[in-house]
C-alpha cells in the first residue's frame, strides 16, 4: 500500500493521497487529493481507481472515477466526481480533509486530440461530463473550438453546466424533467447542435445507452466520435478481465477487449453496442470461432495486423475518453 517502486516515466502509480477537500456539487460529490505523480502523468480521459472502506474493508474492489481536474497546488492534485449511491461511494463522500486515500492512476487510454484546429462537440450525460472539462482545456490549447452538450435526468444532475457556459463557445443543456435547459435527452438536440456548431469531431462520455445513440447519430452525419465507456470494473489495471466489451479492431476482427486498459476511450463506431453483454458469434475466441485467413475482408479494406488476442485488441479504437464515474454505473458494481 506504499508508493510502489518503479518510478517509470509513464504508466500508473499507486499512491497514498491526502484528501484536500470533499465538496458537494449539486447531486454529486467531488474529492480533491494530493497526488503529484498522478497529476503529472494525467491526460484527459484517464481515470483513477480508488480503494474504499479503509483498512480491513469488506469492499475489495476499487471504484473507478474519471479525473475531472488536475492542479499544480501542493505539488499536484487530482479531482474526481461521483454520485454517492452505493456503500463504497457513500464511504468516500464521508471522507474529510487530511484523510488518506489509496489511489491507482492515471489509468486507461486518454482521448486522442486532433492535430488541426477543428470544431469539437463535447457531449456528457450526468457526471459523465466530468472528464470533458480537462479535455476542453487541452482542445483549446490546440486552438480547437469547444461546444458543450450536457444532459441529465434533472437540473441538479447536470454536472458542470456553469463551467460549460463560461468556457465553451456554446453550451446546450437538456434535462429529462425539463427543470433546466431543453426538456428531453441530448440526442434529441444533437443534430441541431452539430449543424449550428459545424461540428467536426464529437467526444462523448456518459451512460452506455447515450453513447450508443450519440455514435449512431454521429455516423449519420459522418462525424468521427470518441466515446469513454462505463463498464463495471474490478481491478482497473487489466488483470481481472471483468470489464470487457466487443470492439472491432483495425483488422476487422471483433475482440472482447478490456475497457480499463484498452479503453475507456474507443472510436464509437468500433464498439459493437448492440452486442454488449453478449459474446458475438464472430468474436475472436467465441465458441466455434475459427481463425480467418489473415487478409480476410476488413471493413476498412485494411486487414492490418491480425492481432493475437485480447491484449492488442482495441488498439483500433485508439481514441477516446473515459466515462463516467464512479461505480461506472452498473448495478452489481456496488457503487
Amino acid at each position: 500500500m506504499t508508493p510502489a517502486r518503479p518510478p517509470s516515466e509513464s504508466g500508473p502509480l499507486q499512491v497514498r493521497a491526502t484528501v484536500l477537500t470533499v465538496r458537494r456539487v449539486d447531486a454529486y460529490h467531488a474529492i480533491t487529493a494530493v497526488a503529484p505523480g498522478i497529476a503529472a502523468r494525467f491526460r484527459p480521459g484517464q481515470f483513477v481507481a480508488v480503494a474504499v472502506g479503509g483498512p480491513d474493508t469488506s469492499m475489495l474492489l476499487r471504484r473507478a472515477f474519471s479525473i475531472h481536474d488536475v492542479r499544480p497546488d501542493h505539488g499536484g492534485t487530482v479531482e474526481f466526481v461521483f454520485a454517492a449511491r452505493g456503500r463504497g461511494t457513500r464511504w468516500l463522500a464521508g471522507r474529510r480533509t487530511r484523510d488518506v486515500l489509496d489511489l491507482v492512476g492515471p489509468l486507461g487510454r486518454p482521448f486522442p486530440v486532433p492535430r488541426d484546429p477543428v470544431n469539437c462537440l463535447l457531449v456528457g450525460g450526468g457526471y459523465g461530463s466530468a472528464p470533458l472539462f480537462p479535455l476542453a482545456a487541452r482542445l483549446r490549447e490546440r486552438s480547437c473550438t469547444v461546444d458543450f452538450l450536457l444532459g441529465a435526468a434533472s437540473g441538479d444532475r447536470v454536472f458542470g453546466a456553469l463551467t460549460a457556459r463560461r468556457t465553451g463557445r456554446s453550451a446546450t443543456i437538456t434535462t429529462a424533467d425539463g427543470s433546466f435547459g431543453v426538456r428531453g435527452v441530448v440526442t434529441d438536440v444533437l443534430g441541431q447542435v452539430i449543424h449550428d456548431a459545424r461540428t467536426d469531431v464529437i467526444y462523448a462520455c456518459g451512460p452506455m445507452p447515450m453513447l450508443r445513440q450519440v455514435t449512431a447519430l454521429a455516423r449519420r452525419y459522418d462525424i468521427p466520435v470518441q466515446v469513454a465507456v462505463e463498464e463495471a470494473m474490478a481491478c482497473g489495471i487489466g488483470v481481472c478481465m471483468t470489464c470487457v466489451l466487443p470492439v472491432v479492431g483495425t483488422d476487422g476482427v471483433t475482440r472482447m477487449v478490456r475497457s480499463c486498459v484498452d479503453g475507456p476511450v474507443f472510436r464509437g463506431e468500433l464498439v459493437r453496442w448492440d452486442d454488449i453483454g453478449t459474446i458475438p458469434f464472430d468474436a475472436f475466441g467465441a465458441p466455434g470461432w475459427e481463425p480467418r485467413p489473415r487478409r480476410a475482408a476488413a471493413p476498412d479494406g485494411g486487414g492490418a495486423r491480425a492481432g493475437d488476442g485480447g491484449e492488442d485488441g482495441a488498439r483500433g479504437g485508439d481514441g477516446g475518453a473515459r466515462g463516467g464515474d464512479g461505480a461506472r454505473g452498473r448495478p452489481g458494481h456496488g457503487a
Binding site: 463495471a232 470487457v244 488476442g309 491484449e311 452498473r330
Partner: peptide, 27 residues
C-alpha cells in the same frame, strides 16, 4: 485455442468477497 469467455456482467462484489464468471478468456 483463443477463448472469448463469458458475457458481461462478469463480476459482482459481495461482503468480503466477489463473484466472477470470466470463462477463461485468453489468447
Amino acid at each position: 485455442a483463443p477463448r472469448a469467455g463469458r458475457p458481461t456482467p462478469r463480476m459482482a462484489e459481495t461482503s468480503s468477497g466477489m463473484l466472477n464468471s470470466i470463462g477463461l478468456q485468453g489468447p
